Amino acid sequence: MKTLFVSLLVSVASFAIEPLINTAWLQQHIDDKKLRIVEVSTPQSYGSGHIKGALHTTIDKWRVNKDTFVTIRDPQEIQNEIQRLGIDASTEVVLYADIQTPKDLLKASYIFWALNYHGVGNVALLDGGKQAWVKAGAPLDSSIPKVAASSYTVKTRPALIADRNYVENHIGKLPMLDARPGDKYLGVTPTDTVARDGHIKGAMSYSWNYSVENDYRLKDAEKLETLFANGYNLDKEHEVIVYCTGGLETSFNYFVLSGVLGYKHVRLYDASMKEWGNREETPMVRYRYEVFQK
């Protein structure tokens, strides 16, 4: 029985891809049949050269405008894109961005969350994106790969998303992290797309870019582990809600907490401040940093 248990652990370990992979790992595994590489960028960027075997997607395939905010597309639309990319339950997915601006990286981390939310768990980000690949001397390709569409059926995981009512009902009950810059959190600097300045009542400030180096590689995971455990008093077994301006910035906090550090219950408030801050009745605080105390 012990031998069988160990064999099962080895099998699971060999199946699950690490959530953050580097260029050396990808060069070694680039021809793995179960691997699907996806570039998140503009068509022009993809056409100018991409990692061998990489397919292409844009953030617009995953998000849609709704009222004052942008949110995840309908499950059927997400399923169509997942199938087009040839992804199914057994696929290991590597997402990477052409990081010309910080937002480019956030589009990739949003799709990381979107895949998780729709039941695809074996997903990784390439540390440092296309720029790290090129810097390592790895080649780019111009050929367009052809892959067979999958028959994957999405299975949404409601525990990975929060709506406005859920957030409001858990103020003071759950820790919340605001992924925007500190000046936006405090309400010192206005946001053009948000009518009211400040942050959700009770939320703590942790700008997403605190987790990356200047070249957009992830900072040391052990230091991040200590930061969230000691500085923010977060517990991996307990739920945390993450939000930002409109869903992108907070997706990187989701990636770090849920993917890299193994927090088990991270909910992403997709509509974020573009919904919350454009309503009159939602509880907000301005000019003050807050610490969660249940």
Rank of each mutant, 00 (worst) to 15 (best):
V212L: 13
Y185K: 08
G129F: 08
V147E: 12
T153V: 09
V64H: 11
S41I: 01
W276C: 02
V256F: 04
D270W: 05
L218P: 01
K103G: 14
P175K: 03
T156R: 13
E81F: 01
A149S: 15
D215S: 07
F228A: 08
L177D: 09
Y263D: 05
V70C: 09
Y152E: 14
I82Q: 12
K2C: 07
A124K: 01
A229D: 08
H170G: 02
L234C: 03
K236D: 00
H29C: 02
V242P: 04
S41Y: 02
E77A: 12
E281L: 09
W25I: 03
E18D: 15
Y216R: 05
P158I: 00
P190S: 11
K184H: 06
I72A: 15
Y287W: 10
C244P: 12
N253W: 06
G259Q: 00
T3N: 07
G119K: 04
A162H: 07
D141F: 08
G231Q: 11
A114C: 11
D220K: 12
Y110E: 12
S272F: 07
L261H: 08
R217Q: 06
Y152S: 13
G182S: 13
K107H: 09
R73H: 00
L224V: 01
F69W: 00
D183Q: 08
R196S: 11
G246C: 11
V123L: 02
T3R: 08
S211P: 00
I59W: 10
S258D: 10
D88C: 06
K155H: 10
E249T: 11
S45D: 13
P43R: 09
W113D: 00
G247T: 05
L20A: 02
V38T: 10
K274R: 10
G172N: 07
V38E: 07
A97S: 14
A124V: 01
S272Q: 03
G187Q: 05
V194N: 05
M1V: 07
T23M: 05
V40M: 15
T71P: 01
E92A: 15
P181A: 14
L257P: 01
V291L: 04
S258Y: 07
W276E: 11
L174F: 03
V147S: 13
A195E: 14
S41M: 00
L248K: 14
L85P: 02
A24C: 12
L248S: 15
V70M: 11
L26K: 01
E239N: 04
P283R: 12
Y185L: 00
L224P: 03
L9K: 09
F292S: 10
V260L: 00
W276R: 14
G86M: 06
G121M: 06
T226F: 04
G247S: 10
F69P: 02
E213L: 12
V93D: 03
E225W: 03
D235I: 00
W208R: 06
I99S: 13
G231K: 09
T68L: 01
T71Y: 03
V256Y: 02
T71E: 12
A271V: 06
Q100F: 07
D32R: 13
P175R: 09
R164C: 10
G187L: 03
A114W: 14
V154I: 12
P190L: 01
A13M: 11
T71H: 04
P175Y: 06
H199A: 15
S48H: 10
S272K: 04
V70Y: 05
G277Y: 07
L268K: 01
T23W: 08
A148R: 13
V40C: 05
G202T: 09
R36Y: 01
E222V: 13
V93W: 01
S41N: 06
A195T: 09
R73F: 03
L177E: 05
